[in-house]
Design a protein around this nucleic acid. Sequence first.
RNA 1: GCGGGAAUAGCUCAGUGGUAGAGCGUCACGUUGCCAACGUGAAUGUCGCGGGUUCAAAUCCCGUUUCCCGCUCCA
Length: 492
Amino acid sequence: MNNQNTVLEKIVSLAKRKGFVFQSSEIYGGLNGCWDYGPLGVELLKNIKEEWWKSMTYREDIEGLDASILMHKRVWEASGHVDNFSDPMIDCKQCKARFRVDTLGDAINEKKKGKFIKALKEKVEGTDNNTALEKVFDIYSELDERFEAIVEHEELSKELLALVNCPNCGTAGEFTEPRSFNLMFKTFVGPVESTDNTVFLRPETAQGIFVNFSNVQGASRQKLPFGIAQIGKAFRNEINTRNFLFRTREFEQMEMQYFVQPKDDKKHYDIWKDKRMQWYKDLGMTPDKLRFHDHPEDKLAHYAKEATDVEYEFPFGWGEIEGIHNRTDFDLQRHEEFSGKSQKYFDDEIKEKYIPYIIETSAGASRSFMAFLVDAYHEEEVKGEQRVVLRFHPKLAPIKIAIFPLVNKDGMPEAARNIEADLRQNFRVFYDAKGAVGRRYRRQDEAGTPYCVTVDTQTLEDNTVTVRERDSMEQVRINIDELKVYFLEKLA
RNA sequence: GCGGGAAUAGCUCAGUGGUAGAGCGUCACGUUGCCAACGUGAAUGUCGCGGGUUCAAAUCCCGUUUCCCGCUCCA
C-alpha cells in the first residue's frame, strides 16, 4: 500500500512538472478539490473527450447536445436531487453532538442495536411501516446491516431515531429531525440574492438531456431507439475530496442517454455495458485493471432498475470511472409530472404511446483522464538508468511527434524545421534542438510522445530520417517524403 | 465530517533558535554525431498563510489552508 501511494505521489509530481495538472489557485494556497489542466493535460483531456465523442456520435442513432449548466430550479425537484442528493444529519438537542444519520450505527454497539430494533418492531406492529421493516428483515440477516437499512429508510428512520439514545450523552428521543445538507452548489440568477431566484449548478449533465428529449427527437426526426450524448462540467459540493482528480467538486462528465422501448431495456443495457468496457480497452487501458461492479438490488439509486460501474484499479484501490444504469422511465415520468408537458413518444411500429426507458452511460472525463494517466505511467531500467515513460495510446498522446536535429548545426536544424512545418499541418508536433538527443528522447518519454523524428548527417545526403518509437525505443529509417503517410497510418 | 502524517527552489529533500542549502531540472555560452554525456556561468525562496513567544523563528507555541493516509462517502 505504501509503495502504491508513492506511485500516485510520483504521478502527481510528474503531472505538475510536465504540465498535465496543477492545483487550482496554487499561489493562494490552493482550493480544496479543484485542479487545473496544464498544456499537456488539456491536450490529453481533449483527446479523451474527442475519442468518446467520435465513438458515441459518429453513428446514425445518437445526437449531440450541449445544455446549459444553469437550469430551472424545478428540474432538480423533479430529478429528486433536492430531496435525495444530500446527507441527512441530526443533532442531539441535549448535548449538541452532531451525527450523520447514515453512519449513526457506527457509534452504537451490537447489544444496543438489537435492543433498538426490537423496540422498533413492537412500535410499528400493525402499521404501514411494519411491511417495510419486514422487507428489511428479509433482505438482511446481519444486525449491522439491518440497522443501516432502517436508518436509510425515510419513515423507519424517523421511528427508530425516536427510540435511540444519543451515543454521546445517552439521552433518548432528543434528536432533531434529520436535516439535509445538500450537495448541490447554489447560486442566484440576477444580482439580488433571494430564495426566489436560487438556481443550482448542475450536479449531473443527464438532466439537461432528459429535459431536451422532445426537442432533440423532434428536431432530429430520430425514432426509438436513439441516444443523446453530451460532454460537460458538473458540480458537487462533496464533504470530502480525495485522491487527486478522483473526487473533485468540479468535474466533467461524458454522458449518453439511450431512449428505448421499455421491453427492450435489458437488451440495450447489456449492449452498452459491453461497448463501454471495450472503449477503455481499445484505448489501451490494461484489461486486468478494469472490471465491472454490479450494484446489488438494494443499493440502487432511487432512479435505477439495474446498474453497474466500470471500475479501474487505481494505486489506492478500485474506483468507478463510469456508471451504466437502467434509469427506467423514472426521469421522463417525473419531468412530465413536474412540467405538465407530455414526455410520451408515439411508436409508429407498434402504434403505441409510451414514456421511453433510458439506458444511461455516464463516464467521468476527469476520472478517465486520471485512469489513463495512471495506466500509462511506467518506470523501467535502461542500461542502468531509470526511464519514466507514459505509454499513452497514440490517439490520446498530447504530443504526437517530436522533431529533432541530431546536433544543432550543419544544416540539420533547417531540415528539421522543414519537416516540422510539414507535419504540423496534420499533427500536434514539438520541435526541440537543445542538448543531447538522448535527453530529448527521455523528455518526450515523460510527456508520452509516441514518435520522435531525428535529422542527422545522412539526412542531408539521402533525404531519410530516423523515426524512434517510444515504447520499444527502436528506430527505423524513413524517407522524408513518406513521413506524413507513415504517421497518418500509425496515428490513425 | 472524525483520526493520523506532511508542507523549505520547478521536482526530490537536508537544515532543532543565530547569514537559506544540496542533487536533479531550467536557461545561456562552448562542446556535440542516436538514448537522462561534459565544461563554464546564471536565474529561481516573504521556508504554505496569519498571529504569538524571543534580542533573534524555517526551527518553539496557537490558529488556519492545502495535500497524503485510515474511516466515511461517491460520478
